[in-house]
Nucleic acid binder design. Structure first.
Length: 412
DNA sequence: TCTGGGGTCCTAGGACCC
DNA sequence: TCTGGGGTCCTAGGACCC
């Protein structure tokens, strides 16, 4: 009786969560039953498909596709805007519920988790998986897939077998029958670049990869090749990780219009830095590497990073360096997207004495903490920098800190 | 007005040191 | 004169995931 791993995956997560939320809000429709997608705002150049309903899928609509393309495939397509706060809440609620079955929960993404059990027989595991799937549906109003095996890779592959609202097993003795028959691109970590390479070598199924020339795969695809070869045999030696510290944080944003001057770019970078630094502080981390990314109007991408002489979580320290890097990197081409990232993180509990820190920087540290407190209590935009006042520019660009949201109604 | 945003991990090449 | 070799650190860039 070895360990049992389950993989829980919310079916069309953003769409399902939106539908469940609308139902709770008393909105009289179910977007799951019509051709619909969750899609960004085209006016602000965020027009892509983030999730699709089962009926939309029948029109060959795919995640990542532009909304224009999607509408060409299905003229009556219903496009619903995303609500990330709902998703963060829903994800958290599901995660907490899953913890009631086992403390060993590994969060894989906003809509996927792994569970570990050490004292279950196969039959008991399957029974429990059905219970988890059905109670989530009952309690939260959306469906999930559950994959069952004895390692994470196989559990995840099992969960992908047939959707939605299904439980599947893929134990090692089922690999030949259930895994090897699948197209090679269905294997975890075989993406759009690797698939054509494998196809060129006559490898079209996972079984063909498993029985291919290991030397060829290993020398041509290096460590990635060795990994997918082992995956094809269902071998996964990764450890089960609960509560791993984060390794980097960042925010990027496609801008409403192309930016062509330093001043506007710097303001956008401040907005991105504020969000990134806030999230860094929320995670109780300091960073030593800062990085800026620029995507130009033709989608060309470049990034520049620098290791600082000290660890910091201070908005000002990060911002100053981001601007220096940006000025060094930017070639003057109109800018479509900007990004700010920090890495080489260390817990702020082991705060080192920073001999490079000046007086202003110390004052800014205190200021950051005060601003964080006010924002947590009264909302994101309760405090904004002067440069953003009376402008159309958003004071906080990019994603969301994944904590509680003030003023939000109790949903899900 | 076709093309988002959050991450992780790996490799390669140059600088620098002994 | 024709070119050591091992190691670490740093930066750029690419592949993959959801």
């Amino acid at each position: 009786m070895g360990q049992i791993i389950m993989h829980i995956d919310v079916n069309s997560a953003f769409l399902s969560w939106t539908a469940a939320y609308e139902k709770q809000m008393g909105i009289d429709r179910d977007i799951r039953t019509v051709p619909s997608v969750i899609g960004g705002n085209e006016q602000s150049r965020h027009g892509i498909v983030l999730a699709k309903s089962t009926t939309a899928k029948k029109f060959k609509i795919q995640t990542g596709m532009s909304l224009m393309e999607a509408r060409q495939l299905c003229p009556n397509l219903l496009v619903v805007p995303p609500n990330y706060r709902v998703y963060v809440r829903a994800s958290k609620a599901m995660r907490e519920y899953l913890m009631s079955f086992t403390p060993d929960v590994q969060v894989f993404s906003i809509d996927e988790c792994f569970l570990r059990f050490t004292d279950l027989k196969r039959e008991e595991a399957v029974e429990l998986a059905y219970k988890i799937k059905d109670t989530i549906k009952e309690k939260f109003g959306y469906t999930v897939n559950v994959g069952i095996s004895d390692n994470k890779l196989l559990a995840k592959q099992a969960g992908d077998l047939e959707k939605p609202d299904k439980c599947h097993t893929m134990f090692p003795d089922e690999i030949k029958e259930k895994l090897w028959v699948l197209p090679v691109e269905d294997l975890f970590m075989v993406g759009r670049r690797t698939k054509p390479k494998l196809n060129r070598w006559g490898i079209y199924t996972i079984g063909e990869l498993a029985n291919s020339d290991y030397y060829l795969i290993s020398t041509q695809l290096k460590s990635h090749g060795r990994m997918i070869y082992n995956y094809a045999w269902g071998r996964d030696c990764s450890t089960f990780k609960t509560g791993e510290p984060i390794k980097s944080v960042g925010n990027s944003s496609t801008l409403k219009f192309n930016v062509c001057d330093h001043e506007t770019a710097h303001v956008m970078l401040l907005s991105l830095t504020e969000m990134t630094a806030w999230r860094l502080r929320e995670a109780n981390m300091n960073c030593r590497v800062v990085s800026v990314g620029i995507k130009d109007k033709d989608f060309g991408y470049a990034a520049k990073q620098r290791k600082l002489d000290f660890f910091t979580d201070c908005t000002r320290d990060i911002y100053i360096n981001i601007c220096i890097l940006f000025d060094e990197l930017w070639d003057g081409k109109p800018i479509r997207q900007l990004g700010v990232h920090v890495s080489d993180l260390e817990s702020s509990n082991i705060k080192q004495i920073n001999i490079f820190q000046d007086e202003l920087s110390k004052k800014n540290e205190i200021l950051d903490k005060a601003v964080d407190k006010i924002r947590s209590k009264f909302g994101d935009e309760s405090v904004i920098r002067g440069v953003f006042a009376n402008t159309e520019l958003s004071p906080l660009l990019g994603g969301y800190p994944d904590d509680e949201y003030p003023g939000m109604s109790s949903i899900l």
